[in-house]
Amino acid sequence: MTLSKRIIPCLDVTDGRVVKGINFIDLQDAGDPVEIAKNYNEQGADEITFLDITASSDNRDLILDIIESVAKQIFIPLTVGGGVRSVNDVRRLLNAGADKVSINTSAILNPELVKESSARFGSQCIVVAIDAKRVDDHWEVFTHGGRNKTGLDALEWAKKMVDYGAGELLLTSMDRDGTKSGFDLELTQQISDAVEVPIIASGGVGNLKHLVDGVKLGKADAVLAASIFHFGEFSIKDAKEFMKNNNVEVRL
C-alpha cells in the first residue's frame, strides 16, 4: 500500500458554464458545473480541476459562485486556474472553497506572485501550470495556448517555480495537447526527476494506456485529462481499473 496515482478530470468553464463535457448522460443540466463535478466525484475522481476560460472580466466572478456551490456538496480537493493575476485573486478563490489555485501566465509576467502567494497561503495550495513545447533539443515555456514564446527553458522554469514555493506543477505538452497521441513522456519524466514536488501530466491523452504510460514512463504523480472523460468515452472508474490491472496504485 502506498500513495495512489491521482486521476484528475479538468472542466473548462466560461461565464459560469462548463463548455466541454456536455455529452454526459443522465445529467439534468449538462452544462452545470456542480452537476458535472458531482458526477465525476461519484465515478471516483481524486480531484477536480476547473479552468476558467471566461474572456470578459464582467463574468469572472462567476467562478467564485461555482466553487462555493461545488465545495458545499463535494468533499474532494478542488483546483481552480485561469486568469489568476494577484494575491487577492488567490485569496478569493481559496475563500470560496478552492483547495489549490493554479497560476500560469501570471507566474511568467510576475514570478513574485508565486512567492508571495505560497508564503501567505502555503505551498500546498499553489500549483504552477507550465505549457511547454519542444524547440530543437529542449522544451520552452509558451503562453496563450502555445502561440506565444517566452524564451524560458521549461526545465529551468520548473525548478525556479519550485524554489519560489510552488507545491505542485501542472505540466502540459503543447505539442501533444489535443492530439490524442499520449503525453510527452520525455518532458514529463525529465521535469519529474528534476524537482521534488509532485507533477501532474497533461496534454495528449487519447486512451487509457496513455494514463499508465504517464505515471510509469513519465513518472507523473497525477494525470489530468479532459476530453476522454467528457465525451463519455471512458469513465474515471474505467481508467482506474485499467491502471490497477497494469499495476498502478489507484484509489478504487
Binding site: M1, L3, S4, R6, S123, E196, V197, P198, D221, R251
Partner: peptide, 12 residues
C-alpha cells in the same frame, strides 16, 4: 519520494 506527500494514501 515527492514532497509534499500529496494525494490519497491508505491508513492502517
Amino acid at each position: 519520494i515527492k514532497i509534499p506527500h500529496m494525494g490519497w494514501n491508505s491508513v492502517a
